[in-house]
């Protein structure tokens, strides 16, 4: 089978607010499309089996593990990656701030996926309890933090987005 014989298919996706069109092989995974075609290397690959969530991005308001979705399936969609999370004026999103303030990351490998999952979680449930946060991020694995400070980081962001001050310090 010659590479040139494989038909490529046009894909049009709005990524972080910018419309992009590329021709891709049908088997191209969305994570590879983002990382290698568009050079958006924020989302990572941790397991290839949709367990770890390091590749999580937002597609049309939903959390998606981009390692188990074909790029062609995203045709016509709006995709937001961690590179598109900061506010339009360049200031950091409350979640990005919260993760730093509450020491919600260490090696940083799960962080982009975790942030994008948390963003959708807070859009669905703006003021979650600790248990709701823990269930809400159960599709995203972190090997470094033990999650406790990630929970706090999300609580920090929820408080800020709701116009409240988050009192608790990072442990």
């Amino acid at each position: 089978m010659d590479m040139s014989e494989i038909d490529t298919i046009p894909v049009t996706v709005t990524v972080n607010g910018r419309k992009v069109q590329r021709f891709v092989e049908p088997r191209t995974l969305l994570i590879h499309f983002l990382r290698e075609e568009l050079n958006l290397t924020g989302a990572h690959i941790g397991c290839e089996t949709s367990h770890c969530g390091a590749c999580t991005v937002e597609i049309d308001g939903q959390s998606v593990k981009s390692c188990t979705m074909f790029a062609v399936q995203a045709d016509g969609s709006a995709v937001t990656t961690v590179e598109g999370l900061a506010n339009p004026d360049g200031t950091l999103h409350a979640l990005q701030e919260g993760f730093r303030q509450m020491h919600g990351l260490q090696c940083g490998y799960c962080t982009p996926g975790m942030l994008m999952r948390a963003k959708v979680l807070l859009s669905e449930n703006p003021d979650p309890t600790e248990a709701e946060i823990r269930h809400g991020i159960a599709g995203n694995l972190c090997r470094c933090t033990g999650y406790q400070n990630i929970v706090k980081a999300i609580q920090y962001a929820a408080a800020k987005l709701n116009g409240r001050e988050f009192q608790e310090a990072a442990e």
Binding site: T41, V82, E83, R100, G108
Partner: peptide, 21 residues
């Protein structure tokens, strides 16, 4: 002191550089 991490500024914005990047 509980200094906030320098690394987080790039990691929270997807600007870390890992080998596969």
């Amino acid at each position: 002191c509980k200094r906030k991490r320098v690394e987080d500024i790039r990691f929270t914005q997807g600007k870390g550089q890992y080998v596969d990047d």
